[in-house]
Structure formats: structure tokens, C-alpha cells
């Protein structure tokens, strides 16, 4: 497999390149961008991020744990405080709410680390420091005999620089 890099200057150009390459049957793409771009994201037509599921799981875990912990501990040693029931649900809702946020937030960040950072499927080949400044990069994985075709597509889509990536 070979990798060809095209360098672009705007999200709109990058979206154009993605459409053009995918239209020509090149689906193994990686895009580097200095900013988040909904247009680029939608151009890949991705499945919903798995992060949202873990936010939900974290929130549900937190609220369940919040109520279970407070109620169980209240009945584990029964003390009447201020004439209230052992398990005072309105008072315990504060604890359950805070744990909902805590677990929801923690698992959101955990999921981001797993999906986006620690176990990424993205390829770093072709990355250059200018992609964190203002350049957009599109790396295409293709067979060696397809390189001229990919280069032609990238150049015709407006890439300011096109080159084969080594390594």
C-alpha cells in the first residue's frame, strides 16, 4: 500500500477532495484539520460517536449509585435525624444528582480517550506541524499503481501540494 498526501487551505476545499476521492472509489482516507469542522465530519458520513453512549452509561450509573448508596447506608445504621424518614429521597436527590454529573463526565472523558486518543484507528503517516496551524491534510491509502490517479484527483480538487508519503 502507498500513501499520498494532499495539502489544502480550507474546510470547503477539504470537503471537495473527500467527495471527489470517495466518488472515485478511494475510501481509505485520513484527514488532518486544525479546527473541528462539521462539514468534514459529515463528508465521511460517520456513525454516531460512541462517546455519547458512555455519557449515558455514566449518568445512569451515577444516579443509581447515588440513591443506592445513601439509602443503603441510612438503613445500615438507623438514626432518626431531624424527624425525617431514614431514607429521605428529596435530600438524597442532591447526592444522586452530583454523582450523575460526576460519573457521566468521567466516563465521557474516558470514552474520548479510548475512542479518540489511546486506541485511535487514525494514521499519523503524513502528519506535519502545519496541520495544527492552518493547513488541512488529506492522506489517501492506495495501491502503488493507483498513485498517479490519486495525485491527479488531489491536484484537480485544488490541493496546493501533493506528494507520496514515505514510510
Amino acid at each position: 500500500m502507498a500513501s499520498v498526501l494532499g495539502v489544502l487551505k480550507s474546510p470547503a476545499e477539504t470537503v471537495g477532495v473527500i467527495h471527489s476521492l470517495r466518488g472515485a472509489g478511494f475510501d481509505d482516507l485520513e484527514v488532518f484539520s486544525p479546527i473541528p469542522s462539521h462539514e468534514i465530519e459529515h463528508a465521511f458520513n460517520p456513525a454516531p460517536s460512541g462517546v455519547r453512549l458512555w455519557t449515558l452509561i455514566g449518568g445512569l450509573t451515577g444516579v443509581t449509585l447515588g440513591y443506592l448508596m445513601t439509602i443503603w447506608m441510612s438503613y445500615d445504621w438507623e438514626l432518626v435525624i431531624a424527624g425525617k424518614p431514614f431514607a429521605s429521597i428529596p435530600a438524597y436527590t442532591v447526592i444522586a444528582f452530583e454523582l450523575t454529573i460526576l460519573f457521566g463526565g468521567a466516563l465521557t472523558v474516558g470514552a474520548l480517550l479510548v475512542y479518540g486518543l489511546l486506541l485511535p484507528k487514525q494514521k499519523s503517516r503524513g502528519y506535519r506541524p502545519s496541520f495544527s496551524v492552518g493547513d488541512f491534510g488529506c492522506v489517501v491509502e492506495c495501491q502503488a499503481d493507483q498513485i498517479p490517479r490519486v495525485q491527479e484527483l488531489l491536484e484537480s480538487a485544488g490541493c496546493s501540494e501533493v506528494r507520496v508519503v514515505e514510510g
Partner: peptide, 24 residues
């Protein structure tokens, strides 16, 4: 943490920021 600004990373990052905002 190995950030390269790939479309995949931004997708998860944007979603995480949105959810953290909703929680915060």
C-alpha cells in the same frame, strides 16, 4: 496524547465537549 487533529479525533472530541457542556 497523540493528538493529530484527524477527522475521527475531532468527531469524538466535539461530542465529548458537547456532553461535558451539557453536564456542566
Amino acid at each position: 496524547l497523540g493528538w493529530r487533529g484527524t477527522a475521527e479525533q475531532w468527531r469524538h472530541h466535539s461530542r465529548a465537549v458537547l456532553h461535558l457542556s451539557g453536564l456542566a
